[in-house]
Simulated scan of single mutants.
Amino acid sequence: MEPKHRVNEGWEIAITLPEPVDADPEAEAIPITVVFEDAHLIVVDKPAGLVVHPGAGNWTGTLVNALLHHCGDSLSGIGGVKRPGIVHRIDKDTSGLLVVAKSDEAHQGLAAQFADHGKTGPLERAYSALVWGAPQSLKGTINANLARSQANRQKIAVVKTSGRHAVTHWQVKERFGPAQDPSVAALVECRLETGRTHQIRVHMAHIGHPLIGDQDYGTGFKTKANRLPPHLKDRVERFSRQALHAGLLAFAHPVTGETLRFESPYPSDFNDLLSGFRHF
């Protein structure tokens, strides 16, 4: 039955409930790239395609399952049984840096920094995004509230009233296209002042520059690939995710106070796509 289907008086409706799922995620030997680790926290370079924590449709094979195998029982329990140590997330099909707490003290300290959004500390989060079109300005700020879309509850939308405060600062790093009109696409650095679900993807689409490969917020730009040179069109069509990489993460160590700063190189698929646009 469709969610909006009208129910008539006298109908009998049967509901089939799925079998209960064990709430405790199990350790799984999933390879992960560890950038930094000590007794209090671990920084990983997450590949695209890996879900951060268990949830509907992804009860196994997540980063949490991998961390349980790697760290044993040392992950912070503040996040709950399904999200031990998780203080922030990046989307399944976004690659890049993520910090996870191994002690409760670290979890509390990291959570406070992320809640503060770097206003009073060294927290930095920068993402590289390949977007359709090239913004006329070199940089700008998107200040637009976000909420669940009324049309599709699995998507996020910009809303004029209510919603959650969301701010993204962006800067054009490169523009791509023929010499006479380098406005087909652009490499943009996005820095988060807030951290909302799908924030960069929705904000960039909101200003008319959705991420290349974004199946949720950039489908209206699919026809643009048909205007590309054959070698580049092929690369774009083979790119199976949104072109977004969390390449910079900096924060104060929640126990020692030392400022830690990490950078992640582009993964091979992102680098291949970027190389194709550079050789337009």
Rank of each mutant, 00 (worst) to 15 (best):
V52R: 00
A106V: 04
A147E: 12
P122E: 11
K46F: 03
R261Y: 00
S128R: 11
A129L: 13
D116H: 07
S76D: 00
R191I: 05
I32M: 05
E19C: 11
F176L: 09
K119F: 00
L211Y: 09
A179P: 07
E124Q: 13
D234E: 15
N145Q: 14
P3Y: 08
V236D: 02
Y127V: 12
T256W: 03
K102L: 09
H107N: 02
S275D: 15
P182Y: 07
L123K: 03
V7K: 12
K4G: 12
S268G: 03
S264M: 13
A252Q: 13
A205T: 11
H88Y: 09
P20W: 07
V44N: 05
H70C: 13
I78S: 02
P265M: 09
K224W: 09
F280E: 00
Y217C: 04
S162I: 04
I156H: 11
E2G: 01
V43R: 06
N152Q: 11
Q215L: 06
P135W: 10
H203P: 03
D45K: 05
P47V: 06
H165C: 14
G121W: 00
E258M: 08
G49A: 13
T33S: 13
N145T: 13
A115S: 15
L41V: 03
G177W: 08
W11V: 15
I15K: 07
F277N: 05
A111P: 00
E9Y: 08
G85D: 00
F221E: 04
A166F: 09
V21Y: 01
E37W: 00
H88F: 11
F176R: 02
S95G: 15
E237M: 14
